[in-house]
Design a protein around this nucleic acid. Structure first.
Length: 294
DNA sequence: AAGAGATGCAACCGCTAATCG
DNA sequence: CCGATTAGCGGTTGCATCTCT
């Protein structure tokens, strides 16, 4: 919260500059939402549906800007939003997806049902990035830090980032061989060892490939990643290795979970992409748990 | 018990992309 | 085609709470 609870925009400017158009109106409330406001917004959206955020506050009788309403709904009030701690499985998934996608929080969140981009981003910044750093891993690149020096009580018990052995994206670097060229060859190149698959050597290629191809391919690829489908991953790797200048989508056997036309690589409860932004297509109305209030 | 520092997270900001007229 | 509007994204902020001394 960047503004005291209950504060309203006065319309004044700092340093003579105009304030942001969205919340610049006099009388627009900012800061934490009250339960009453939540109820008004939730009831309105349930009745009228999402969208038209600009006009929503006026119609709903809220002294908020549309942007704030949208954010509150998306991150907090949506029935599909899952509250509670990030599970180890989710954490593992976030790590994998971040390694592949970088700070594309919405895209990552789109693969983790019930979690919002804001939540994923917060969790990354407050937990995972610190864990990686404490392991001597650069959270941005997922590669070993150049001059990492573990502290004396630096997680000797191995309670660090929870990753299953076959998916250990970031094998703990041995500080004693920080400059060992052999280690550099294996680790600083950023190799991700999914079993016998070393995708990272073609990181650049497949990232471009994925970006240049349709979202179904990306979606299916992420599904296969999530579901540990080595066949699908190998198919994609091969396709990407062939890759540019004329990258054609890989062919998918009918039975493969990597077939974008069937989407059968999805586990139950996973939502598909609603758009290239990674928005969830389907809500989960059964999950009616609303979050706590500030 | 109290103060200081660290941490978690909701909310805001600024920007870009997409859509509309 | 173009400008205006809207939606969405990632980065950042700062208050509330927790933990430590």
């Amino acid at each position: 919260m960047r503004h005291p609870s209950g504060s309203t925009i006065s319309g004044s400017t700092s340093a003579g500059k105009t304030v942001t158009p969205c919340c610049s109106k006099v009388g627009i409330k900012r800061g934490p939402w009250t339960p009453e406001e939540d109820e008004i917004l939730a009831n309105y959206v349930k009745k009228e549906g999402e969208g038209r955020w600009r006009t929503l506050p006026k119609k709903a009788g809220l002294l908020r800007c549309g942007k704030s309403c949208r954010l509150r709904w998306m991150n907090y009030l949506r029935p599909s939003v899952k509250r509670g701690r990030i599970t180890p499985d989710e954490e593992d998934l976030i790590l994998r997806l971040h390694r592949l996608l970088g700070n594309r929080w919405a895209l990552i969140a789109g693969r983790i049902p019930g979690r919002t981009d804001n939540e994923i981003k917060n969790y990354w910044n407050t937990h995972l990035s610190k864990k990686l750093i404490s392991q001597g891993i650069d959270p941005r690149t997922h590669k070993p830090l150049q001059n990492w020096n573990p502290g004396p009580d630096d997680d000797p018990g191995g309670s660090m980032v929870s990753v299953t052995p076959s998916h250990d994206l970031n094998p703990k670097p041995n500080p004693g061989v920080a400059n060992d060229p052999r280690r550099d060859q294996a680790s600083t190149s950023g190799i991700v060892d999914y079993g016998d698959l070393c995708l990272e050597t073609q990181h650049e290629n497949w990232e471009k490939y994925l970006e240049n191809n349709n979202e179904d391919v990306l979606s299916s690829f992420l599904d296969s990643l999530m579901n540990d489908d080595p066949i699908a991953l190998r198919q994609l790797r091969n396709a990407v290795a062939i890759g540019p200048p004329s990258p054609l989508p890989p062919t998918f056997p009918a039975h493969s979970s990597f077939n974008p036309s069937t989407n059968n690589g999805m586990t139950s409860g996973q939502a598909g992409f609603g758009s290239s932004t990674g928005e969830l297509k389907s809500a989960h109305p059964s999950n009616a748990a609303y979050g706590r209030h500030a």
